[in-house]
């Protein structure tokens, strides 16, 4: 992002003023620079192959790499491949999902701590996480066993 001016950003956008992000491209460029929008908020940039390179550049500059300022679980969405190891090694999730015990993904009606939703680790039942329950033994299973190194407890 360093050194990028609004026109540099604008040049990487589709420049069609299609309004799918809710504004014209120039306004979207300023919104990106001000941290009020993310490249993913521009549908043509994400969907159209011709913008792939520009999208990559903008993601490099403005994308969410999973960094978090406050303490908490950080998920790097670029690294997670949805393999589900995090859910499969979470003892509490296994207690709450018979399907998970049987080697399947948990079902809608179940409430494991972790589920794979939309291709990514998703915290479905945060209140049951051992990191949250007072006096529960410390647990790092999901973070320790994620082979993609997509998870960290900050």
């Amino acid at each position: 992002m360093a050194g990028m001016k609004v026109l540099d950003v604008y040049r990487l956008l589709p420049r069609t003023n299609c309004h799918q992000c809710g504004m014209v491209c120039m306004a979207f460029a300023s919104a990106l620079l001000m941290g009020k929008a993310r490249p993913e908020d521009c549908p043509p940039l994400v969907e159209e192959e011709k913008h792939a390179e520009a999208y990559e550049k903008l993601r490099e500059a403005f994308g969410d790499k999973g960094e978090r300022e406050a303490t908490g679980l950080s998920i790097d969405r670029d690294k997670c491949d949805g393999c589900g190891i995090c859910a499969a090694v979470c003892e509490i999730s296994l207690e709450k999902s018979q399907e998970l015990v049987n080697g399947k993904g948990s079902r809608r009606a179940e409430s494991p701590v972790i589920a794979i939703v939309d291709g990514l680790i998703t915290i479905k039942n945060p209140d049951a996480c051992r990191r949250v329950v007072p006096d529960a033994p410390t647990c790092n299973a999901c973070v320790d066993l994620c082979p993609m190194k997509a998870l960290t407890f900050l």
């Binding site: 999208y55 949805g82 948990s106 589920a115």
Partner: peptide
């Protein structure tokens, strides 16, 4: 919304607007 598919599986389905963050 899609439960349980990994990211490779996810890419096989035609996704609605919630998936803007995934290159489609």
């Amino acid at each position: 919304q899609i439960f349980n598919a990994c990211s490779w599986g996810l890419s096989k389905f035609h996704l609605g607007h919630r998936f803007l963050r995934k290159p489609k």
